[in-house]
Simulated assay, not measured.
Amino acid sequence: MKVTQAGQHDVVVDVVCDVCGISTRNADAELQYGSMHASWGKGSAHCGEEYEIHLCENCFFAQVAEMKRTRWLAVMFDS
């Protein structure tokens, strides 16, 4: 989740991980995060819906590992 400061132009002041809820600022006060985005189109059960998920480094790579594991389990008995 992006945390913004209202003003003439909204300014992103922090990005909080949507999984664990911690700030994604590193020791140098720089934002370090990954994001996953989905935009569903015609024919989808979720047509017109958009999603953006912000993740800290640990949660991002945990999600990537889980996706790889899910894929591996799906094909492990294929010839």
Rank of each mutant, 00 (worst) to 15 (best):
15 V>L: 09
11 V>K: 10
16 V>E: 06
67 M>R: 08
1 M>Q: 07
71 R>A: 06
9 H>P: 00
22 I>C: 08
79 S>V: 07
49 E>K: 14
3 V>G: 05
23 S>T: 15
76 M>V: 10
30 E>N: 10
28 D>W: 06
20 C>V: 04
54 H>L: 05
10 D>M: 00
44 S>T: 00
45 A>E: 15
57 E>K: 15
2 K>P: 01
47 C>P: 02
27 A>C: 05
63 Q>T: 10
69 R>E: 11
60 F>N: 05
4 T>E: 09
14 D>F: 08
62 A>T: 13
7 G>K: 01
56 C>T: 06
37 H>I: 01
29 A>C: 03
71 R>G: 03
46 H>P: 02
18 D>Q: 12
70 T>E: 06
69 R>N: 11
65 A>W: 06
60 F>E: 04
55 L>H: 11
79 S>W: 08
43 G>Q: 00
54 H>A: 14
57 E>G: 14
6 A>V: 03
21 G>P: 02
35 S>L: 12
44 S>L: 00
46 H>N: 12
20 C>H: 09
4 T>H: 10
26 N>T: 07
17 C>E: 09
77 F>Q: 14
68 K>N: 12
17 C>G: 05
46 H>W: 14
61 F>I: 10
13 V>H: 15
28 D>R: 15
63 Q>E: 05
59 C>A: 04
8 Q>V: 04
45 A>D: 05
6 A>K: 07
1 M>Y: 10
